[in-house]
Every structure is written in structure tokens, then in C-alpha cells.
């Protein structure tokens, strides 16, 4: 009887020990998992001035694909790319560049993409003009010298895709009444987001900035139809069928 009690006591202790250990393990791993999971979801949003190299997959995929090896950084001939440190507002160890400091020089052979061992920088990018690292936006018209009526034109001049990605649109200067203003205008179908314009902007703070495309672009309602474009596509013909001839309703004695 006494021995039986001891055995039961031993079993009870074992069970208690097991339950305690299991609870400790599960809670510990749970806390770690939640902590890391929160860090991971925070990592998805990063500072907008930190741009990804050309060919980078969309951010959500990029964070699962990038190995943080730095081979793109090594092969960047202009030291544009940097690897994020733990306190930077972008996922630890991933490559980025800041256009105002060192913009992308848009190498023809795209060495950073060629260097990437994981495909986080998409090998399908074979023409640097197709890169979309961000989108330049003339973000402050109040300080842009061209908007003030001067001829700065620097962003337009340095643009690697001059007259495609940035054009100067002439309009009447209403302030003087007899001059023109040449407004730098970015076209999203051509702009690669290289950041040469932002780097070159002569202001203390750039009036033109490269921002992530998601921030820069609007999106028109999908039910909208741009009549003037459809009309061009329709060889200038009317977009609706020939109107039905309606009877003329007026007294017969008037003409």
C-alpha cells in the first residue's frame, strides 16, 4: 500500500513536471512567434524614401525572397545600393537606395539583377528602361523654380529618359502676363524611378521626389470610359450608333 502511494506520487510528479514543461514550451514559443510575426508584418511597410533596386519583386514577395547576401550591393558600380542595418526603417539586411543621396545610374547590363542569387531581383528585367523602382513626382509646385517662372530645367535635363519620362509643358505665366512657364511633367509610362531628378534638384529640399508607385499613382474607377481616347481608336467616328430619326412635332403651318 505504501509502495503504491509512492508510485502514484511519482507518477503525479512526472505528470506535473510534464505539464509544466509543456506549458512553458508552448507559451515561450507562442510569445516568440507572436513577437517575430509582428516584426515581420511591420517589416512590410518601410520608409518611402528607401527605394528597392531595379527589378525588385513587389515588396511583399521581396521580403520572402531576398537572402540579404549583399551581392547586388557588391556589384553596383556606383555604390548606390546599401544593406539595411538593424535600426534602419527598412527590413534588416535588405538592399535599398536613397535617391537624394546616390540615385540609380541605370546601367545597361543591370549588374545588380545579374548578381542576385535568389531571384528577388527579377532576372526577367532585361531592359533597364522597364525598371519601376518608384515614380518621380513634382511634389511641391510652390517651390519648384520652373513653376515660379524661372528656367531651372535641371530635373528635365538630367533625366536619362529626357522628353519621355519628364517633359516641359509650356503655358502662359499669368503672374507677369507676358512670359511662359515651362512645367516639368513626369510620365509614369516611362519613368523608372531612378532618382536622378531628385538628386539633381537645386533646392535645399528637392521639389521633385521619387516615391513608391503605390503612393504616387491614383487609380481611376474601372467603369470610367475616356471618350476622347475611344473616339481616336474609333477613327473619329461617333461612339454611339446612329441616332434614331425622331418625328418633328410642331404645328404643320409653321416652318
Amino acid at each position: 500500500m505504501k509502495q503504491g502511494n509512492t508510485q502514484i506520487g511519482q507518477q503525479g510528479r512526472n505528470r506535473r513536471q510534464f505539464l509544466t514543461d509543456a506549458a512553458r514550451g508552448v507559451c515561450g514559443m507562442g510569445a516568440l512567434g507572436v513577437g517575430l510575426g509582428l516584426m515581420a508584418s511591420n517589416a512590410r511597410s518601410h520608409a518611402p524614401e528607401m527605394l528597392r533596386p531595379p527589378g525588385a519583386l513587389p515588396e511583399a514577395e521581396f521580403l520572402g525572397a531576398c537572402l540579404r547576401c549583399g551581392l547586388c550591393v557588391r556589384d553596383c558600380p556606383y555604390d548606390t545600393l546599401k544593406l539595411a542595418q538593424i535600426t534602419d526603417p527598412v527590413a534588416n539586411g535588405t538592399p535599398y537606395f536613397i535617391a537624394r543621396e546616390v540615385p540609380c545610374e541605370m546601367c545597361d547590363d543591370i549588374p545588380c539583377v545579374a548578381a542576385c542569387p535568389s531571384g528577388a531581383l527579377d532576372q526577367a528585367l532585361d531592359n533597364i528602361d522597364d525598371a519601376r523602382m518608384g515614380l518621380a513626382v513634382l511634389i511641391d509646385q510652390e517651390t519648384c523654380l520652373n513653376f515660379l517662372g524661372l528656367r531651372c530645367d535641371v530635373c528635365y535635363r538630367v533625366c536619362p529618359l529626357i522628353d519621355e519620362a519628364i517633359t516641359l509643358e509650356m503655358e502662359r505665366n499669368a503672374r507677369t502676363g507676358h512670359h511662359a512657364r515651362f512645367l516639368p511633367t513626369v510620365h509614369s509610362d516611362a519613368c523608372t524611378g531612378c532618382g536622378k531628378c531628385e538628386e539633381a534638384c537645386v533646392l535645399e529640399q528637392a521639389a521633385i521626389k521619387v516615391v513608391p508607385i503605390k503612393l504616387a499613382k491614383g487609380e481611376i474607377g474601372h467603369h470610367y470610359r475616356l471618350g476622347w481616347e475611344e473616339k481616336t481608336a474609333n477613327q473619329g467616328q461617333s461612339l454611339i450608333p446612329e441616332q434614331i430619326k425622331l418625328p418633328v412635332r410642331r404645328p404643320e403651318d409653321r416652318s
Partner: peptide, 27 residues
Amino acid sequence: ITGVLAWELVNPVSLLHRGLIFGMGMG
């Protein structure tokens, strides 16, 4: 679950090695 290499945000092994080569910061 998250699509993010969560461990690599903190992994001290890659952090130290990368830091010694590319710059450590507060790592």
C-alpha cells in the same frame, strides 16, 4: 504565414557576419 523571412530580421549569425562586412550600426 507572413511571407516575410521573419527570423532573418533578427538572426544574429547573419546579422554579425553581414555587419562585419557591410557595416554593423547598432547590430
